[in-house]
Write a protein that binds this DNA or RNA. Structure first.
Lengths: 202, 202
DNA sequence: GTCTATAGCCAGATAGAC
DNA sequence: GTCTATCTGGCTATAGAC
């Protein structure tokens, strides 16, 4: 049975907080702005979430636990390498078009709080052995050119994630308005996987 | 004749400010921290740079005017496409290893201040027509597979820039220490250009 | 639970002695 | 030009009425 999504004060606050924190980050966010966005009083934020720090942590955990499983797909899914690349590209870009500030937010806050990284990954350390084996086998079978699993993983991540993180830079350099940009991103759902597969296939 | 680099109070302050601003961004940076880093008094910062905002702008302009010409190379250099890709990859990665926080800083602040983008690019709007023509000709000549200039530009940027922007995420997922990470980045000076060229060459 | 008013702190900026 | 001391504003957090 699926839990019904009531619009509680907590969820209203959390949603408002996500919008502001994702765009501005911890330091630049003002509790007043979150209160305004949620249509409530500033004191209410503290009633429900004690402090800015705790509210921020709730937002960050939610963001990270949304993103991490998607990246884990690359490492742990059971399908073939090319299917993996196609699926991830398709799914990730579709998802991130709806949450464009999310990767940037996570990366930003990880940069500011290096101790976060240790805490987050110490609980459930990702293991790329399976992915590495898959690459090695595909190389041995003559399906793909030799490449390190780490480098391929970085390349997949880079081609999918960067356009959203670096959106303002890209828009500036290519002189694109929001509409042009979105069209390019839409194309990338297949463009990127073709690019990667062409780069490695024999 | 090359102007000699004296170590003036201004330059000391600016260098200290770069270190802090690049890592923490505008909002999270404290003037006191910059003063400590520069080994001077907080009042001196205001004596030389009026306000935090003005000091920040000096740092940002310096960062942007370092990065922009490198990206322009892709669009405007006169060499062949494959050489362009090889040169940029080699040069950019070598450079950024020494200034790892720079792209993240610029992207971050562009995200927070959308009006920045307009101001920065309105003065000297980059023009990708030349690059687009080059791609179209190489496609026509049967040198490379059909690809949009915009998509190729984004891919080159993504593969080179992202690993540094997303470093904490990558280190976490691949369980790398700083040393492992640096080794991978060194490999990428040739790895990335090979990857791109394999993806597009016929 | 929800609000108004305010306490308390922190950081940017300045006054003024040297 | 350089410092110490201090002002001022803004922001988080809480007290307390309802």
């Amino acid at each position: 049975m699926i839990t019904k999504e009531h619009s509680t004060p907590e969820s209203n606050i959390l949603n408002a907080a996500k919008g502001i924190f994702h765009r501005k980050g911890m330091a630049a966010t003002r509790m007043q702005e979150i209160a305004d966005e949620a249509g409530i009083n500033k004191a209410m934020l503290h009633y429900y979430y004690r402090s800015k720090q705790l509210l921020f942590e709730a937002v960050f955990k939610s963001a990270f636990s949304t993103l991490a499983p998607q990246l884990n797909e690359i490492i742990n899914a059971d399908n073939s390498l090319f299917d993996k690349i196609r699926n991830f590209t398709q799914n990730y870009i579709s998802f991130i078009v709806k949450h464009p500030y999310l990767p940037n937010f996570i990366i930003q806050e990880l940069n500011r709080n290096p101790e976060f990284v240790e805490k987050l990954f110490s609980e459930k350390m990702p293991n790329i052995d399976k992915f590495r084996k898959q690459i090695e086998n595909d190389v041995k079978d003559g399906l793909i050119k030799p490449i390190k699993a780490e480098q391929l993983f970085i390349n997949i991540l880079a081609l999918n994630v960067f356009p959203f993180v670096g959106a303002p830079l890209i828009k500036g350099f290519l002189n694109l308005d929001d509409d042009d940009f979105l069209k390019l991103m839409h194309e990338r759902k297949t463009e990127v996987s073709n690019f990667i597969i062409n780069a490695i296939k024999i």
